Computed example of a mutant assay.
Amino acid sequence: MEKEVIYNSDLYFEHKQWRRELFFWEDELKSFKNRLNEIANRWTDKNVLAELEHFQNQFINQAEVIDKMQHDINVHENKIVENTKEGEDILDLNLSRKHIEFRNSMETQRHIYGDLKKEFFRFLSKYL
């Protein structure tokens, strides 16, 4: 059976996709925070404000996760660049494992972020 070969260029392509996705999430969070400000200006009810604070905290957490993921992509990519400079276009086993772990983390984060968005949109529909 032939082994599958993973090339640095393939991983770089995936990194670019992840960066775009993370950038989009960052931009989206800014928009969500603006919506929270609109609600804060309209409502004084303690229950509404408590929910609002919950989303503020969730958005802060998401921003931190996004920053960490961007950092991790950069670290991983630097290692790929080192391999390429050494004339190695094929990723070594440890970097391949890291990449797969990160791919799984991105998939998990997509679900977490998607669920948060659904919850936030339900909140918006009640209070805007």
Rank of each mutant, 00 (worst) to 15 (best):
Lys3Glu: 12
Ile6Tyr: 07
Tyr12Asp: 08
Phe13Glu: 14
Leu22Asn: 01
Leu22Ile: 03
Phe24Leu: 11
Trp25Glu: 06
Trp25Thr: 05
Trp25Cys: 01
Glu28Phe: 12
Glu28Gly: 03
Leu29Phe: 06
Phe32Leu: 01
Asn34Glu: 13
Glu38Asn: 04
Ala40Cys: 00
Ala40Glu: 05
Asn41Gln: 09
Asn41Asp: 04
Asn41Thr: 01
Trp43Ile: 10
Thr44Phe: 08
Asn47Phe: 11
Leu49His: 06
Ala50Ile: 06
Leu52Asn: 03
Phe59Gln: 01
Gln62Phe: 11
Ala63Asn: 10
Lys68Gln: 07
Lys68Asn: 10
Lys68Arg: 14
Met69Gly: 01
Gln70Phe: 15
His71Asn: 13
His71Arg: 13
Ile73Phe: 03
His76Val: 04
His76Gly: 00
Glu77Arg: 14
Glu77His: 10
Glu77Ile: 11
Glu77Thr: 04
Glu77Ala: 08
Asn83Met: 15
Lys85Ala: 09
Glu88Ile: 02
Asp89Trp: 11
Ile90Lys: 03
Leu91Val: 07
Leu91Lys: 10
Asp92Arg: 05
Asn94Gly: 06
Asn94Ile: 15
Asn94Thr: 14
Ser96Arg: 13
Lys98Gln: 15
His99Pro: 01
Glu101Val: 10
Arg103Cys: 14
Asn104Trp: 07
Ser105Lys: 15
Thr108Glu: 13
Gln109Tyr: 05
Gln109Ile: 05
Arg110Phe: 03
Arg110Leu: 02
His111Val: 02
Tyr113Arg: 01
Tyr113His: 05
Glu119Gly: 01
Phe120Asn: 01
Phe120Ser: 00
Phe121Arg: 11
Arg122Ile: 13
Ser125Asp: 04
Ser125Thr: 07
Leu128Trp: 12
Leu128Thr: 13
